[in-house]
Amino acid sequence: MRLLNKNSGTWSRAAIALAAAVVVGAVAAPFSMADPKPESTRAAAPAGDPDLLLATPEVPRVSDGSYSGFQFCGIPDQTPQVTTDRPSLAATLESVAPPGSVEKPGADQPGRKVVFEVTESDGNPVLTKKATTEASHTAVYQFPEDTLSSGDYRWRVRVQDGPATSQWTAWCDFSVRLTD
């Protein structure tokens, strides 16, 4: 099979189909890897008044800091590991704004209230932090300096908006490995 017809200088149908398949694969691969949304991070909503339940945050993740890439939670045999005592925790909230927009909290737009809960791996409490998000579609918390030492931890988050509250995310295990 010839990919290029020497006489006319045109590409064969096979060459065009091969090039199209490569382009489609190159475009689709990053999208399929960007948001794994493992099933283990989702749980059924508890019974209750459906008007008082918000969507549960999704895609919990952990990072070494503000400018580091995130490691996703809930991927089998891949516990996120950080090398700082100030890791960042993040989750995606149900967005009420168009993608790419930024909403600043104000008197008329307070953002979403989120609650982060962190424990040691055995369940001993480390901290519970209530915060207001800067944007309605992301909850992020960075630990204060010297809060964590080397060890294994877990965290989860939920959203509160007036009387409406989401369920907690599944626990996200992570390890802190500080170098001396």
Results as ranks from 00 to 15, higher is better:
Val59His: 02
Val59Thr: 12
Val59Ser: 08
Val59Pro: 00
Pro60Asp: 13
Pro60Glu: 11
Pro60Gly: 07
Arg61Ala: 09
Arg61Glu: 12
Arg61Pro: 01
Arg61Cys: 02
Arg61His: 10
Arg61Gln: 13
Val62Trp: 00
Val62Tyr: 00
Val62Arg: 00
Ser63Gly: 14
Asp64Phe: 06
Asp64Asn: 15
Asp64Arg: 05
Asp64Leu: 07
Asp64Trp: 04
Gly65Asp: 07
Ser66Trp: 14
Ser66Gly: 14
Ser66His: 13
Ser66Asp: 15
Ser66Ile: 13
Tyr67Met: 15
Tyr67Trp: 15
Ser68Val: 09
Gly69Leu: 10
Gly69Asp: 14
Gly69Cys: 04
Gly69Val: 08
Gly69Lys: 09
Phe70Met: 06
Gln71His: 11
Gln71Val: 02
Gln71Thr: 08
Gln71Asn: 12
Phe72Gln: 12
Phe72Met: 10
Phe72Ala: 08
Phe72Leu: 07
Phe72Pro: 00
Cys73Leu: 04
Cys73Glu: 04
Cys73Met: 04
Cys73Val: 00
Gly74Ile: 06
Gly74His: 06
Gly74Leu: 06
Gly74Asp: 07
Ile75Pro: 05
Ile75Trp: 03
Ile75Lys: 07
Ile75Glu: 10
Ile75Ala: 05
Pro76Val: 07
Pro76Ala: 12
Pro76Met: 02
Pro76Cys: 03
Asp77Leu: 07
Asp77Lys: 02
Thr79Lys: 09
Thr79Cys: 04
Thr79Glu: 11
Thr79Gly: 05
Thr79Phe: 02
Thr79Ile: 10
Pro80Ser: 07
Pro80Leu: 02
Pro80Trp: 00
Pro80Met: 04
Gln81Met: 14
Gln81Ile: 15
Val82Phe: 06
Val82Gly: 03
Thr83Gly: 14
Thr83His: 15
Thr83Glu: 14
Thr84Lys: 09
Thr84Pro: 02
Thr84Ala: 03
Asp85Leu: 06
Asp85Met: 08
Asp85Val: 05
Arg86Glu: 15
Arg86Met: 15
Arg86His: 13
Pro87Asp: 05
Pro87Gly: 06
Pro87Arg: 02
Pro87Phe: 06
Ser88Ile: 05
Ser88Arg: 13
Ser88Cys: 15
Leu89Arg: 03
Leu89Met: 12
Leu89Val: 12
Leu89Ala: 05
Leu89Glu: 03
Leu89Trp: 08
Ala90Pro: 01
Ala90Gln: 05
Ala90Leu: 02
Ala90Ile: 01
Ala90Arg: 02
Ala90Asp: 02
Ala91Arg: 01
Ala91Asp: 00
Ala91Phe: 03
